[in-house]
Structure formats: structure tokens, C-alpha cells
Design a protein around this nucleic acid. Structure first.
Lengths: 172, 172
DNA sequence: CGCTACTTGTCATGATATTACATTTCAGTT
DNA sequence: AACTGAAATGTAATATCATGACAAGTAGCG
């Protein structure tokens, strides 16, 4: 399988994390990591969940829930929204996938296995999404939160702009 | 949930920015600031736009577009979604209102008049939203963006957690 | 006035997400 | 192997958030 399947959008060869890399190894490695961590933690990486993770890893860009749902249907899974949303909920809860709030879309985690609050750089031209390290709770914002007595549990950090590859092409 | 949407409610009972303040002065001041800046910049703060800003200032919390729309209808304005969305678009573009991506909701700017990238603290219990100072482009994230060659144009920084008042009440 | 750009009102539709409930699958037990 | 309770899945229906298209009104200006 996996030969067909292309949502009306960009090809899966396109935007990576802003830099080239061995995509096949990246996908295989992330899936293996997910599998072993699920085994270790008693989590069930069921076929739908595994498929959603695989799709997100292969596309290597942010996909909306309904785009994922289309791909799931083509792969023979259920095609109602809760199928996709439930798989995504599991994957997000366990850190294998992040939600990009700004796009209402989901992207495979670039650093699975470690706990972290993700930060994203989103290209407004090609929609590529790169995950960056970040520690928002340290720094000025964290200080403001502590001063206000606010207990941070989760953070969303997303930057919108132009990726190097689009900037090189002639920006605008 | 809890979008009570009652223009005659006492607004001072609602969640503020996590701290008490003179709400009437805060509303009046922000409206005056908006009016003078629009006059200075040749922007048209029309009745609908002014009303939306006033509503957001009075409520002093994040409101969804449809909650705003309900309030607009009660005030005698049009009641179709574009009415609210267009006013919000104007207000957001000009920095009078921010969108809270995490909530798909809108909140009046706490520091109008100055250009800034907003950062929010969102209480998951009472849904209060406080705006904090932040400079995400400085610090580790900004460094990562520069290293990657990514040109930041806009940032979203939102922390979810528990506000001091909910924490005092018995948290969980 | 008559032109133009902008704004507003409305209908229709699209995009994103959740509730509710029946059915199936799984792990652990009898 | 059959039983059981918890978890996962499939499906229909619905809720919530957002935009496109177009007609009608309004301000500023020659």
C-alpha cells in the first residue's frame, strides 16, 4: 500500500523541516521509537493510530484532521471524523504528534521520546512547519507568569513567517 | 461553554486579568485610545467596529465570534457571521484586539497603542485570559529561528494553566 | 449630482470538532 | 475455551468556527 494517496495539496516530497534529511530513515525511526515506547508504557499503538502517525511522518507537514481522514478512508479505515480525532488525541496526549493551533492542523513530533513543549516555525508561503526547541516557561514570559501566580501547564509557541527556501525563491 | 452572553450582567464579577482594577476607566480609556488612533491614522472606527471593541472591553475575557454576534444582534446590528468576523478582522489588524488561537476566541488588547506581540495566560478552569509582555523573538526560540534562516513575522504565545484565583479556590 | 471606494447586511456554504450510542476488540480471568 | 470489564472503533447526527458571493447602503470627492 502507500503508493496512491495524495490529497489535493503539495506532494509529500516537498517541505521538510527546512532542511534535507533521510526521510525514509526518519519515518522508520520515529515509528520504531513510538512502537517501543508504547510497548514500554503499556500503550496500545493500534492500526488506526499507527497509520495516522505514519501518514503524518510521511507527509512531513501539518495536515488537517479531514485530510488525515481522507487518507484513512483510502487506507480502508473508518471515515467519520471521530476516527481521526480519536487517533490524533491519543498521539497528541502521548507526545507523538503536536497540534499546530494556528493552522488547526497536526504534525508529527520531531523529537519523540523526550518530554518537551514544542515550538513551531510556520512558513506562510509553503506551509512548511519546523519544530524548534523552546523553553517558554524560562525567560521573560515565565517570569511574568510566576509574578502573576499563574501555573503554566502547557504552552503554545508558534511563529509565522517565511522559511529560508521560500525566501531564496523570491519571497515577495 | 459558559458563554453567558448577558450584556446586563455586572462585568466586575467576571474574571479580570487576574487582578482587580478600575474596569470602567479601563474600558473608557481603551475606547478613547482607539478612537484617537483611528482619527490619527485615517482608520474608520465605525459603529459595528466600535461596538465589538466595547463589548470585548466590557466583558474583559475572550469571546468567540458567535458570542460577539449574539451581543451585536441584541444591540441591533446585523446578525450574520461576516458582520462579526469583519469587525474583528479590522480590530485585529490594527492591534485593538487579539485572537487567542487556542480558544478560537478574541480578547481586547491590554496594551493598545503600542506595537507588540501578545502573549497570553489562559486559565483552563475559569477561562480567564491575561495578556503578558513577551518578546519571543529574543531568547532561545529567536536564536533557533535565526539559525534556521526563518524570518519571523508574527508569533503566537499562549500558556494554558491555572490562574491564581482558581488555584486559591481549591484547584485540583 | 454622479462617481468611486468602502462598509454593511444577508444567504449560502465550507471547515473544524464533538456528542451519543451501538458494536467490536483486547487483556485478564474463570 | 468462555466470560467479563475496559478500551477502542464505526457511524450518524450535530455543534462550532469561518468564508465566499453578491446586493444594498454610505462617506468622501470630482
Amino acid at each position: 500500500m502507500t503508493s496512491s494517496v495524495n490529497p489535493k495539496d503539495a506532494p509529500s516530497a516537498a517541505p521538510l523541516g527546512f532542511q534535507n534529511h533521510d526521510h525514509r530513515a526518519c519515518v522508520a525511526g520515529a515509528l520504531a521509537t513510538a512502537e517501543s515506547r508504547c510497548a514500554a508504557d503499556g500503550l496500545r499503538l493500534t492500526p488506526v493510530r499507527r497509520k495516522v502517525l505514519e501518514l503524518l511522518l510521511q507527509e512531513h507537514r501539518a495536515l488537517g484532521a479531514y485530510a488525515i481522514l481522507d487518507l484513512l478512508r483510502e487506507a480502508g479505515f473508518g471515515s467519520q471524523p471521530p476516527v481521526a480525532y480519536r487517533a490524533l488525541e491519543f498521539l497528541v496526549e502521548n507526545g507523538f504528534v503536536h497540534k499546530v493551533e494556528r493552522l488547526n492542523a497536526f504534525v508529527a513530533c520531531a523529537h519523540p521520546g523526550r518530554m518537551h513543549s514544542p515550538a513551531f516555525m510556520i512558513c506562510r508561503l509553503c506551509e512548511a512547519v519546523a519544530e524548534a526547541p523552546s523553553a517558554p516557561a524560562r525567560g521573560a514570559f515565565g517570569a511574568a507568569a510566576r509574578a502573576a501566580g499563574f501555573q503554566i501547564e502547557r504552552t503554545v509557541v508558534e511563529a509565522e513567517g517565511v522559511c529560508p527556501s521560500c525566501a531564496a525563491k523570491g519571497d515577495a
